[in-house]
Design a protein around this nucleic acid. Structure first.
Lengths: 142, 142
DNA sequence: TATAATCCTATTTATCTGATAGGAATATAC
DNA sequence: GTATATTCCTATCAGATAAATAGGATTATA
C-alpha cells in the first residue's frame, strides 16, 4: 500500500517544473539539485513522463524538459497512473475484464472496486497547480 | 498500491470463519479446502491474526481456530492493518513523529496525510459481517 | 567543432512476497 | 496411556520489484 519513490519523485519534478518554468526548457541537473535527488535516478523517472506525453525533452545545449500543459491541467492521479501502473488494489482489476475464476462468487470484489474508485477520484481531484506556490497566473504560453 | 495476497487471504479466512463457525473450533484444513488456498501458506497468515488477538487457536484433536468477537465487531481495516502493517502511503507517516528532513517544506505531505485518512476510514467502515451471507443473528455465544 | 544536454541499455544490491518443508508441542478420544 | 489430529515454530527458497548507479550514444546550440 505504499506509493513508490518513483511516484513521489515524479510529482516533485512536476511541481518543480510548474514553479520554475517560464516556457523555456529546464535541464534535469537543475531539478535534481533543487530537489536533492540523484540526477541519474531522475532520468529514468522523467523518461516515463516524456513517453506518456506529460513532458517534452529537448537534447543539446539549452535543452531540458518542459510541461506540455499548464499546471492546472495535470492531476496527481495523472502522474501516479504512469509511475504506479494503475490504481487496481488487486490484480484481477487490472484489466477491463476480470479473468479470475472466483470472480462470480468473490465476496470482496466490490470492496476492491469501490476502493479503486475512491483512490482514483481522490488523486484525480488534486492538481499540480494546487501544490505549487504559484498564483495560477501563467505568464508563459504553452 | 497493491493489497498483498496475505491481506486478501486473511480477509477470506475471517469471512469463512464468520460463515461456518458456530462457536466451535474450525481446523485450518477445512478453511484451506473451502478457499482453495495452500494450508501451509495460510498457517503463516493465520498465526498473524492469532498474535494480534483476532483469532484464537486450539491445538490437538477437535482443535482449530475461532473468532474472538462477533463478525460485526471486525472491520476489514482491522485485518489489513495486521497483514499490511499500516496504511501509511509513504514511509515518513509510519511513525507518530515525522522524522523527514524535508517535512516542513514538503509540498505533498498533506496529500499523503489526507490519503491515509481516506483509506483508513474506508476500510474501517466495512465489517466482516457485511461480507458474509449471514443475517447477523448469531446463534452462538462468544 | 566544442559543449551541454537528453536518451538508451545494462548492472547491482537489497528487500519483499509468496510459497514450501519438516518437525515440535499439545489436546482429545478411545 | 497411546494414537491421532491439530496448532505452532523455524528455516529455507525462488522470483519479482524497487532503488540506485554507470557508461556511453545521440543531438541541438553556440
Amino acid at each position: 500500500m505504499k506509493i513508490s519513490t518513483r511516484g513521489r519523485y515524479a510529482i516533485r519534478v512536476m511541481i518543480d517544473l510548474a514553479e520554475h518554468a517560464q516556457g523555456e526548457y529546464i535541464p534535469l541537473a537543475d531539478i535534481a539539485r533543487r530537489q536533492e535527488i540523484s540526477e541519474k535516478y531522475l532520468e529514468a523517472i522523467v523518461s516515463m513522463l516524456v513517453k506518456a506525453g506529460l513532458l517534452v525533452g529537448l537534447r543539446g545545449k539549452k535543452g531540458g524538459y518542459r510541461l506540455t500543459k499548464t499546471p492546472d491541467q495535470y492531476s496527481v492521479g495523472d502522474i501516479l497512473k504512469i509511475t504506479e501502473g494503475n490504481f487496481a488494489p488487486v490484480a484481477c482489476l487490472e484489466d477491463e475484464i476480470n479473468s479470475c475464476d472466483r470472480a462470480s462468487e468473490c465476496k470482496t470484489l466490490k470492496v476492491w472496486e469501490d476502493f479503486q474508485k475512491l483512490v482514483n477520484d481522490y488523486f484525480s481531484s488534486i492538481t499540480i497547480e494546487s501544490l505549487t506556490g504559484n498564483d495560477g497566473c501563467y505568464d508563459y504560453v504553452i
